[in-house]
Design a binder for these strands. Structure first.
Length: 835
RNA sequence: GCCGGAGUGGCGGAAUUGGCAUACGCGAUCGACUCAAAAUCGAUUGCCCUUACGGGCUUGUGGGUUCGAGUCCCACCUCCGGCACCA
């Protein structure tokens, strides 16, 4: 047999899988559907097709494919689809640069991804392939949008939004990182614009509560989402400005510190600011301050460490708990977007208020006893954010603040000055984008249907979907969507009154497209509905989701929100889309993140061409635990290639030798030793799979098996029973490596056992062969290893002790000393404690 | 600052319930095969002392619990990721 030539065998099996449509599965009611088989939905996050796939894609799909294969061979009907998240900015920016239309570049990239997925041998049900940029898909994205609109979950509103000047579009909060555009790194600006939002905040509590419904998600992902949602319980309390007869509500998590409020601060964007200072001496200074803040970037303003600034308003409000008049200020450390845009300042117990009080020489009034040695800054131990006995708080003095908390809120309530309140850090999801390459938002604006001069928002009826994306010439954004230039497309007729109307020219954030794709896979060709309910009910939820941790918040939270909203629309029966989540770590090169500018990228195509897909996939799974990152090493790839070649050669040797007459139970000597190793490897690999996808150690176990076969084979080749043992070892190795190296696994299995390895159940270790007659007894003196003795497996404690004491090496350490204690762990260890 | 995660040979990493630290792979050294090289096969490979036998030390640092700690507890150091003026 010739040497290991991955090209040949990989092509052979890829052809088999394509021709026989091996990985296609049927929906309930379709021919070939087996209701007796349990289902398993294994899904990797769909790729964004830009250029060629990179090594992160290879890792994601190699990991997912291993899981899919493992489940199939445990009797599950595994659905394992693939698609493309094809709308998005890079294709459009490329179009602006090169003139190549986004559709053409995207299709070209999809072709490349599709070809490489086949070359990698990923077991995909290709009959379910989809692209989010096709009218057949985005028709239903638009359909879902309309359902959300009907429910009031989609709305259009003028609000301060984050604007990226480079990409010339608004961004969702989640897409702004450290005050910069997530995509291009440009500092974002704040603008007031009318935009489309999805009411994700309505689901904040359910998004939090339903973490309980998940089977297994990485703890840190749950934590990140929890922090992002940022639920805070507290109270809303009204402070009254008597001069103007205005109530100013504030949100506070610390109503127990109300007695310590010594001043009051409004955000620069607060709507009542104008009224408060109009015609007063403070007017000029306040206006100047507000203008200055408005010019600052989001990044500058967000800096926590900066000096506190602000301007007094010359007005005051009354503290409802003690009737004290406290002065009002405007300051940029108060944010309009959170709470009510106004705060009561308690400098004694809040660091930020304390800093402001220091800068403006305002009184600091302690109302909670105690000091925090870490945080305290002055001789009184203030500010103190912790708990303790109340003081300076009238009838609450002496009470513990946490105990009095409820009572204070109840009292405010009875006085009509306050109410229990909950606030979230989470904002509604801004989904409109002033860009071309996305799904059009399916509404039109009709003057005739409108009122008070404002045009009416008229949804496009379902039967006129999709609203197709028109072909245009110029993709460059000019502060409005490039679609606005497509006059023939924009001008339309109102579906309600038939009069002239204009189309919405914004498109949807691509995260909308990817918030429901995992449902469309279940019924991808359905032209009459987004999906068939029975198909969705059968396959959902996704049993195992795999992807990069960079989507911990964005995609994973949006998809959870969509699932809940769709369940509320009575189109789904699950509340959570992804029962189990696995996040893979990033592969680096030379210790650094791969990037074209650094020139340290790894092209999967190159390695596949050189070593074969099996080697590339197995190497990636062998690098280390897949949830952790790892540094790519060319030598490591060679090592894995060596291992696969060794298995290949072993197969060739054993195939050409006569094998017969092996009774597993009766095997002796080296034959038994090798069989035992094979069963050990089965047991080890199976447990590693089940224990959180520890592929690196599972592969190591198969390596050990092949190494042992090499060590023992010369002796075993002497008789047919021995050859049979080696043959069993090689076939077992092929079976176990199949999830990582499917082509080689299939080929070796076919040669040695005949038939298709994937049609065989995952092997089960024979407990007879996992057991051994003798064990290695570890003998310690004072906890230090002194000898290893072969002992009978079932030996009693005194027997083991006698063996241990009989050891010469041990006796050398007992000399002249007294044994004060003997510890025996049967089957494992003896420890003699001497003095 | 707050919330996560991680520190083990020259390197990637293993150690499943508190019980043989360093599996497996890389790299390195030596040997076999070869005219030679590559490939392959085999041996050695944590550090220190020792010709050897053997001994001592070792899982970021310092303490503790235990017959026994990489694993549990306390304090600290370093690195990575997330959030960050959210009242």
């Amino acid at each position: 047999m010739s040497g290991y030539e991955p090209k040949t065998i990989e092509r052979k099996w890829q052809q088999v899988w394509a021709e026989e449509k091996t990985w296609e599965v049927a929906n309930p009611g379709q021919p070939g559907f087996d209701p007796a088989k349990p289902k398993s939905y294994v899904l990797e996050m769909l790729p964004y097709p830009s250029g060629e796939p990179h090594v992160g894609h290879l890792k994601c799909y190699a990991v997912g494919d291993a899981i899919a294969h493992f489940r199939r061979r445990h009797g599950f009907e595994v659905i394992h689809p693939m698609g493309y998240d094809a709308f998005g900015l890079p294709a459009e920016n490329n179009a602006i640069k090169t003139g190549e239309p986004p559709r053409a570049a995207t299709e070209r990239s999809i072709e490349s991804f599709r070809r490489q997925f086949r070359e990698w041998g990923i077991s995909i049900d290709w009959s379910r392939e989809l692209g989010t940029h096709t009218p057949e898909y985005y028709r239903w994205t638009q359909w879902i949008f309309l359902r959300l609109l009907e429910r009031g979950l989609a709305y259009r509103e003028e609000a301060p939004v984050q604007w990226c000047p480079k990409d010339a579009t608004v961004l969702a909060n989640e897409q702004v990182v450290d005050g910069r555009c997530e995509r291009c790194g440009t500092p974002v600006e704040q603008r007031r614009l009318e935009q489309w939002f999805l009411r994700i905040t309505e689901y904040a509590d359910r998004l939090l509560a339903d973490f309980d419904l998940l089977e297994s998600w990485p703890e840190h992902v749950v934590t990140m989402q929890r922090n992002w949602i940022g639920r805070s319980e507290g109270a809303e309390v009204a402070f009254r400005c008597e001069e103007l007869g205005l109530d100013f509500p504030v949100f506070t998590t610390r109503p127990d510190t109300l007695f310590g409020a010594t001043f009051f601060v409004l955000a620069p964007e607060h709507p009542e600011l104008e009224r408060l200072v109009a015609g007063t001496p403070a007017e000029e200074a306040v206006r100047e301050y507000v203008n200055r803040v408005a010019r600052e970037s989001v990044e500058e303003r967000g800096d926590e460490g900066r000096e506190k600034t602000g301007v007094p308003l010359g007005r005051s409000v009354v503290n409802p708990v003690n009737g004290e008049e406290i002065p009002m200020f405007v300051a940029d450390y108060v944010l309009m977007e959170y709470g009510t845009g106004a705060i009561m300042a308690v400098p004694a117990h809040d660091t930020r208020d304390y800093e402001f009080a220091r800068a403006f020489d305002l009184p600091v009034k302690r109302v909670i006893e105690g000091t925090d040695p870490e945080a305290a800054r002055d001789e009184q131990g203030l500010p103190y954010p912790g708990d303790g006995a109340m003081t300076g708080s009238g009838r609450f003095d002496g009470r513990h603040n946490r105990e009095a908390y409820e009572e204070i809120v109840a009292w405010l309530r009875s006085e009509g000055r306050g109410e229990v309140s909950v606030n979230y850090r989470l904002r509604d999801w801004l989904v409109s984008r002033q860009r071309y390459w996305g799904a059009p938002i399916p509404v039109v604006y009709c003057e005739r249907c409108g009122e008070d001069g404002a045009p009416a928002i008229v949804p496009v009826p379902d039967d006129r979907l999709p609203v197709e994306l028109p072909e245009i010439e110029d993709y460059a954004p000019q502060g409005r969507s490039p679609l606005a230039a497509a006059e023939g497309w924009v001008a339309t007729e109102c579906p309600r009154c038939g009069g002239p109307a204009r189309r919405e020219t914004d498109t949807m954030d691509t995260f909308v497209d990817s918030s429901w794709y995992f449902i469309r896979y279940l019924d991808p060709q359905n032209a009459g509905a987004a999906w068939d309910r029975a198909a969705a009910d059968h396959w959902l939820p996704v049993d195992q989701y795999i992807g990069g941790v960079e989507h911990a918040i964005l995609h994973l939270m949006y998809a959870r929100f969509f699932t809940k909203a769709l369940a509320d629309l009575d189109t789904l029966s699950v509340q959570e889309p992804f029962a189990n989540l696995f996040t893979q770590g990033m592969i680096t090169r030379d210790g650094a993140k791969m990037s074209k500018s650094k020139g340290n990228t790894v092209s999967p195509g190159e390695y596949v061409a050189r070593y074969g897909a099996d080697t590339a996939r197995t190497y990636i799974c062998f690098m280390g635990p897949p949830e952790r990152g790892g540094d790519w090493s060319d030598e490591g790839v060679e090592g894995v290639n060596r291992f696969l070649s060794r298995l290949w050669r072993l197969c060739g040797e054993v195939e050409s030798r006569e094998a017969a007459g092996l009774e597993a139970g009766a095997a002796e000597g080296q034959a038994r030793e090798l069989l035992a190793k094979a069963h050990w490897a089965i047991d080890k690999a199976t447990r590693d799979f089940e224990r959180g996808f520890q592929f690196n150690t599972a592969i190591a176990a198969v390596m050990e098996l092949v190494n042992d076969a090499y060590r023992l084979k010369e002796g075993l080749y002497a008789d047919p029973a021995g050859v049979a043992a080696v043959r069993f070892a090689a076939a077992t190795a092929a079976s176990l490596i199949f999830p990582f190296a499917p082509h080689l696994g299939a080929e070796v299995w076919e040669r040695l056992e005949g038939g298709r390895v994937w049609e065989n159940a995952w092997p089960v270790a024979d407990p007879q062969l996992l057991r051994s007659d003798t064990v290695t007894l570890v003998v310690q003196v004072n906890g230090k290893l002194r000898d290893r003795i072969e002992a009978p497996a079932g030996a009693a404690e005194d027997e083991l002790l006698a063996l241990a004491r009989a050891s010469e090496k041990v006796q050398g350490h007992l000399d002249g000393k007294q044994v004060v204690k003997e510890i025996v762990v049967p089957g494992k260890l003896v420890n003699l404690v001497v003095r």
